[in-house]
Design a protein around this nucleic acid. Structure first.
Lengths: 332, 332
DNA sequence: CTGTTAGCGCTTTCAC
DNA sequence: GTGAAAGCGCTAACAG
């Protein structure tokens, strides 16, 4: 490894017999430098393979051109997609992304926030771990919280509530009347918005859905699918695809056919929704829009928070309730 | 936002009437500071909520305690899992992770490498984009390439070849003799290793598998599943779960049952493999071990490269070939 | 237009 | 044990 000390602005300055300030100005296009000299400096910089020292610049300017992204758990399938969207939005603004994982732990989340700030991020994008809120006042850099419209300090989010309504209207139109809702974690505001959106539609129609709370995971969905008495319901709406998929696999295992014996819906439109059999009717978020809004906010381009529409994605896991469904045609 | 200028080492020094050098020494445990004074300094630092300025330290020491992680495409399902493993291994060493996405583009990969170095990462972990190699000599910081044992400069990898052998032996033992291999991208060394491992087992048994190259994606697998003449084969071994899953869904659509009409295997043990129906027999990598080795390498703890064992995961997508399979019992 | 100067906050000799 | 001083590489005032 040829660890040749990288060349500095001063090296260029001395070889060309000018001052470091002029080199700095020439390279960044600030101040007034004669075009001829500027060109000369640029050439020399290139010849030397000059790369500005990021730490020095950060120290001097107080800006690192880095944003921190804090996700609750990068292992869960939605967050990589988010991370990618954030990365793109950041790159468009010349920002790098320092990624941190709270691992579902509020303490870890606090620790990560402090660490990132100590590392000099210019701004923070936080997708809060369930049950936590992040107060911008507590943090010394701009923070964009991405969670739900109901979260204090939320800056960008999908319209989870409307997504819930879309699902509920769809099930209602199909004629379902005995509803199970896999409501996800009781302390997640996103989950609550989704579920409330659904209930807002069901209740006026005289339907009182049964709510079941759990983690938002495949495993939790699977456990519920094994436990619950399926005969009570014509349809099941899950607050997360992961829940729905776990549930789907479990109930198929028990001989319950989807959608013949029971319709099933998810939320998020993960690839999982296309892979499971039958493919899942679900709700898609516009991650690009949310990510872009969050970055625009911390970059100071906008000051308002944004709520972005969601979209119903119809697949084969929903159908009209079977004529026999009431009695429970399927196993058990 | 209470943008109170964070306190510096000097603030502590003046309030306590000592020198900045002593504060620095006390806080880091270097040099000799009397225990009493050291304790006093620590208390004051805490009281002020002092956080060392990362940029200043990096400028002075030339170390940023940050590693760059470059993934080919964070949208593909295996890489988030990798990123998480790397994050954990890094955190264990007090390192932060700057993440970059090559988006499958060799030029973007080069650009990201340069950007990361300019940002002062102490080391780089690179999972190369297909068809590229990264020469450590070209880079001014330690680089760990994670790819395949066959990749020049590879530092940590799973034993993809042995994984291929595991799959092939399993299919052979079940009695399969007409094999289709979804070989993935022709220029991917990882894919090639996996496929060669399979062929090493099949050929001595007198079986010459048919190879089909494609992207390593769900979509490519799906396309192949729709196109190929399935009657020619009793089993299909894919070099990636994503390919296998796409293929599975496509051929089920054509009326071909897995594993009755055709056995199918994947590679990587994504969650996808558990979600698809039937669940996929596949090969699991030990990502933690690979990630940890890569970090140990760039941290200078070890100097050798490491190849890590893989594990066959048996599920329901493989079975003995049906007695009728030869004629093609299924559709078409 | 270009150069001089003065640091950003920290670590690190080297004196005392 | 502790402190004074010298920068790391860069940019931002301010002079010339």
């Amino acid at each position: 490894m040829s660890q040749t000390r990288p060349s500095s602005i001063r090296e260029i300055a001395t070889t060309l017999g000018v001052s470091t300030a002029t080199v700095s100005n020439a390279l960044r296009g600030t101040g007034r430098v004669s075009p001829a000299l500027a060109e000369q400096i640029r050439l020399e910089a290139e010849r030397l393979g000059y790369v500005p020292d990021h730490a020095a610049r950060a120290l001097r300017t107080g800006k690192s051109n880095t944003v921190g992204l804090l996700v609750p758990n990068i292992g869960q399938p939605l967050f990589p997609a988010f991370a990618q969207a954030i990365e793109r939005a950041a790159k468009r603004r010349g920002l790098a992304v320092l990624i941190g994982d709270s691992q579902g732990d509020p303490q870890q989340q606090d620790f990560e926030i402090r660490t990132m700030i100590a590392r000099g991020v210019d701004a923070l994008i936080v997708i809060p771990t369930r049950g936590t809120t992040v107060m911008p006042e507590d943090v010394s850099v701009p923070v964009a919280v991405i969670d739900s419209a109901a979260t204090t300090g939320n800056v960008a989010a999908s319209d989870h509530r409307e997504g819930g309504r879309l699902i509920a209207r769809h099930l209602l139109e199909l004629g379902h009347d005995r509803l199970l809702i896999l409501a996800g974690p009781e302390n997640s505001l996103v989950a609550r918005e989704r579920v409330e959106g659904m209930c807002e539609v069901f209740r006026p129609a005289g339907i009182e859905p049964a709510l079941r709370y759990s983690d938002a995971t495949f495993e939790a969905g699977s456990a519920l699918g094994h436990e619950l008495d399926l005969r009570d319901f014509t349809a099941c709406a899950a607050a997360y695809d992961a829940l729905a998929v776990g549930f789907a696999i479990a109930i198929k295992d028990r001989g319950c056919s989807i959608p013949e014996d029971m319709s099933l819906t998810g939320f998020d439109d993960l690839m999982w929704a296309q892979i499971v059999s039958p493919p899942l009717t679900t709700v898609r978020q516009d991650l690009e829009a949310v990510a872009n809004h969050a970055l625009a906010f911390v970059a100071g381009e906008i000051e308002t928070s944004g709520i972005f529409p969601t979209e119903l994605v119809l697949r084969q896991s929903t159908a009209r309730p079977s004529a026999f469904a009431k009695g429970g045609r399927h196993a058990e």
